[in-house]
Design a binder for these strands. Structure first.
Lengths: 195, 195
DNA sequence: CTCATCTTACCTAACGTTCGTTTGGTAGGG
DNA sequence: CCCTACCAAACGAACGTTAGGTAAGATGAG
């Protein structure tokens, strides 16, 4: 049963880099050093393989956030940890991030619902609770969305940001991103959290 | 010479929805009601067509920001207009947004450089100037990136946000997004700009 | 003005390749 | 003896691309 997991692992990498249409079953078979028929022995077709690969990629990250929402922490500290953890995950596991962003582009409503339930919902609910404690805004859902959007897109745009004026190498370090995002969230653009 | 533009227009729509590999030359030819050979009469190959379509999609948006950076406006008002304009463009021209986000995933370094120069650089420089006036932060580049990232990803995540707790229909209205984002940028998450 | 020529914008039909998938098999451990 | 895990070879369909042709308009010489 090792082969199946190995195929899934490899499929995650390939799909996240080249997308569903960009990866052929022959490509994948060659990558895992098997025949295409062997791949079909484990998965009924390409679509099913893709969905399993997606679940596989997402399941790995489910417990990354366990240390974030501990009850004895202040709301501010929880938020800090969440931002930091999210930045860490998205930077470290490039395949996960790309897979997710590809799904945001390609998924139909059914798959989007799956993505919401399996990947986001739990963390999102926690995040909303924390924001409720920190802020008097009525737009808790929207604010939580902003937190996630900010971290995700800053990391996605890194490859672009390199070619824009004023770029510095430190902008790509996880800790720097987490710190700056938290500062923005707490103080707005004025940013008085700097040394 | 009308046909060529019609093909490009159609290609933008198809590529932005299905990606490079997801659109065949036969699909495209059928969409514009021509033979595939006719498409090859106007474009030397699929790659060239894709690049031209990309430029076509991006060129359309170049002058959307003209009214934003007028010299007699306050820095705050410029920022407000920029956020509003960006939200407007990304919401209205779905093809443009999807094309851009697909490029962020798929482009190599050369195409990324093109994207930076052709689409972002001018607005980004203006935005950095405005942020310099509004804030004492040393991280002007990073703050500018945050502004863009925030707007882009909130709009991208709308399809997902619909399936997360606390969602309301008004969260998808352009004016609401622009207003909330600006409030977050000015005041942080606490958000005292609400009625 | 006319006729031949050239150019543009398209067509049908096919090329070789690659695609997702299936068939029919083998080798080995329980 | 059967079940699991694989294989080589092939299926038809779809792919990017090209060859070779047509019909209509522009051009230019007589």
């Amino acid at each position: 049963m090792d082969s199946k997991e190995y195929i899934l692992q490899t499929a995650v990498t390939l799909f996240s880099r080249q997308g569903f249409e960009g990866v052929s079953m022959r490509d994948l078979a060659k990558s895992v050093d098997m025949s295409t028929a062997a791949v079909y022995h484990h998965f009924s077709n390409k679509q099913a393989l893709y969905l399993e690969a997606m679940n596989f990629a997402f399941a790995k990250q489910a417990r990354a956030f366990d240390a974030v929402w501990q009850a004895d922490l202040s709301a501010h500290e929880k938020l800090r940890r969440f931002v930091s953890c999210l930045a860490q995950v998205l930077t470290t596991d490039v395949d996960f991030r790309r897979f997710m962003q590809r799904e945001l582009l390609d998924a139909d409503d059914e798959r989007m619902q799956l993505l919401a339930k399996e990947v986001f919902q739990e963390q999102f609910s926690h995040l909303m609770t924390v924001i409720e404690q920190l802020s008097e805004t009525q737009q808790v859902h929207f604010s939580a969305l902003c937190v996630i959007a900010l971290v995700c897109d800053i990391i996605q745009m890194q490859a672009l940001s390199r070619h824009l004026p004023g770029w510095q190498a430190e902008h790509e370090q996880v800790d720097f991103i987490a710190e700056q995002v938290l500062d923005l969230l707490m103080n707005g653009i004025k940013g008085d959290g700097n040394k």
